[in-house]
Design a protein around this nucleic acid. Structure first.
Lengths: 337, 337
DNA sequence: TTTATTTACGCAAACGTTTTCGGTAGATAG
DNA sequence: CTATCTACCGAAAACGTTTGCGTAAATAAA
């Protein structure tokens, strides 16, 4: 069985390889008649151009990489959805890599990607990442990068985020309005920019409402869920006066629910809870969870579109192209409404 | 800035391209001394081999494709996690494609992939797919494929699934044990093999317990969630005698919850519900949802491992390599326990 | 008529890697 | 002193595409 490539096509058509290639790319240097002949045979034999040969020659892979901490998280799942959609529309392929919030893995992935396997990169940095040299070096390799959600402030490029500060502020104020006097903040990891923004919103909302921020009420989560549950349990036992919880990330809100159920703390009577979450079932929880919901799909899609624009034009991505998409606060029963 | 490739390396080292290539691949035809020299310079200059050149020459892409209906679904998210893990361990990359349960899209994706972009394919077929010619043609293109979860019985290859029939049987019997006399089955789509298996389990459990199956109690879901809600509402209103619901897929279980809340049907007093689900928060729902939980991560990982074994050995994947991983039934309050 | 210009196509060189087929120098064996 | 072997290395041909350049014929302009 002879392979079906430009060579075999050209032989059957009595044309040169060059002409067949041009015909398939609809070049104006080929007569309409030949184009018809070529296309007919190509589709009859189900010809598919070899992506790697093409990529090698054109130095373009029509592929973008997505590097995220994990996918088993509704936010990232939705974001991928948006990314894939945008990529598909522009004829791009999507390579996916999970860091599991591990710095070493993130570095090794990025290093590999510099080999030209991707034309551009979308990224949500790992919580463990402190050093950004590996990201900076992407610039040298001429691979544009766009951050989404968990951005890296130190790198000069476009970032797609939600209004983290305002959301943190709103969430906290929502708890205060609901009557909370001692509000704990469960945040992802203290070296993540979005965590810091949300935390600053929390702090500012407290002081704006004459409540003194108390570092003892701030807990930063870890990777392991069971460990988080233990930490939250300890926090609630140590500070029985806590009557409000603001969780910066879905996982911690869920864990807080578990601990409250376990400790027989009634929600919202004893403790009110609000958390960042993209959980569809949030309204079906016991009680329905008040959420700040990020436009995850749009964040992914927007980030991909910005990246693809840069890739297509072979221009660098600029910080000025950054976009902030607003989250929505859904007040439900867990905060008393 | 000169590019860093084999040519530039070889020039700086006063070696031939061939030797540099061999040194980096740790060939025995190169002296240890030269290897050290080569590796030193390569890592100093952060040399990354061009993946496309290598793929073109070796006719191997070190990439697998994953084609799934959607990612915003806990099952698939977890499966991807397992897939990525297995791929990473073997040095493979993962391309991801979403069909959104659309046959046309699935076909076009598969067609593109025959260009040699991937060494193998993992797939969960779209619910709309009836014709399998596009999948069969992968055999001709010599691209091995392994199905997981939503398999295609007509294609001769390995499949990784859960024990769908038994799970459907168990779930139904669980409802019967809980006292249900009129059990509805909400299934994904009637032309999906897993739906059929689960449905057969449902039917057999009914007859084994002297309950006559009633086609009027069987509803097959559609793509749109709101539409599903409407369908379920209509079903519950038309058949007020329904006292048990078995949902073959997470989305439908959630929708059933919404409808029950809306119609003031008490769970589990009026209606008992059990559903396939990988939702972490299932235990936190109101009331906690009884679930049949598939080992999603393991299903993805196992499927990937089988595929990669075949790819590495350049052998076809056999049906005999199929694996069935058991789901677990978690009895919670929604079925009265 | 001659001279430009256009149209349609082919030749051959890239792209960066891997691999086959040698080739040379030195060591060992006969 | 030749023959065989081993250990290293290089030249060059692939892999399938794209593309700059050349060119013949056909047409238009002079």
């Amino acid at each position: 069985m002879t392979p079906v490539n430009l060579k075999s096509l050209s032989e059957q058509l009595n044309l040169s390889i060059a002409t067949v290639s041009r015909a398939l790319r609809d070049s104006h240097e080929v007569s309409e008649a030949t184009k018809v002949r070529v296309r007919a045979l190509a589709s009859a034999l189900h010809y598919e151009p070899n992506a790697y040969a093409s990529s090698l020659r054109r130095n373009i892979s029509k592929t973008i990489g997505v590097v995220i901490p994990k996918v088993a998280n509704h936010f990232f799942a939705l974001a991928i959805n948006g990314i894939e959609e945008a990529a598909r529309q522009s004829g791009y392929h999507v390579l996916i890599y999970l860091t599991h919030d591990d710095y070493e893995r993130e570095m090794s992935i990025v290093q590999h990607l510099k080999g030209g396997r991707v034309d551009g990169l979308l990224m949500s940095v790992a919580s463990g990442t402190q050093d950004f040299a590996h990201l900076r070096s992407l610039k040298d390799a001429n691979i544009p990068i766009v951050f989404f959600d968990r951005v890296c402030a130190e790198i000069e490029t476009a970032k797609v985020t939600t209004n983290d500060y305002e959301s943190g502020y709103q969430a906290t104020e929502h708890l205060i309005q609901a009557g909370c006097r001692t509000i704990a903040h469960l945040l992802i990891s203290n070296n993540l920019s979005i965590g810091q923004f949300r935390h600053q919103g929390y702090l500012d909302a407290l002081t704006a409402n004459d409540q003194a921020p108390d570092p003892d009420l701030v807990m930063s989560g870890v990777m392991d869920n069971e460990q988080n549950v233990a930490l939250i349990r300890e926090l609630l036992l140590r500070r029985p006066d806590i009557d409000g919880i603001f969780a910066s990330v879905e996982r911690l809100a869920i864990s807080a629910y578990r601990v409250c159920h376990e400790l027989q703390r009634r929600i919202p009577e004893d403790v009110k809870i609000i958390g960042f979450s993209n959980l569809e079932a949030a309204a079906l929880l016991d009680p329905p969870l008040s959420t700040i919901t990020q436009p995850a799909y749009d964040i992914g899609r927007e980030a991909a579109k910005i990246l693809l624009r840069a890739v297509e034009k072979k221009k660098a991505v600029l910080s000025t192209q950054s976009v902030v998409l607003e989250s929505t606060l859904f007040a439900r029963q867990s905060t008393g409404s």
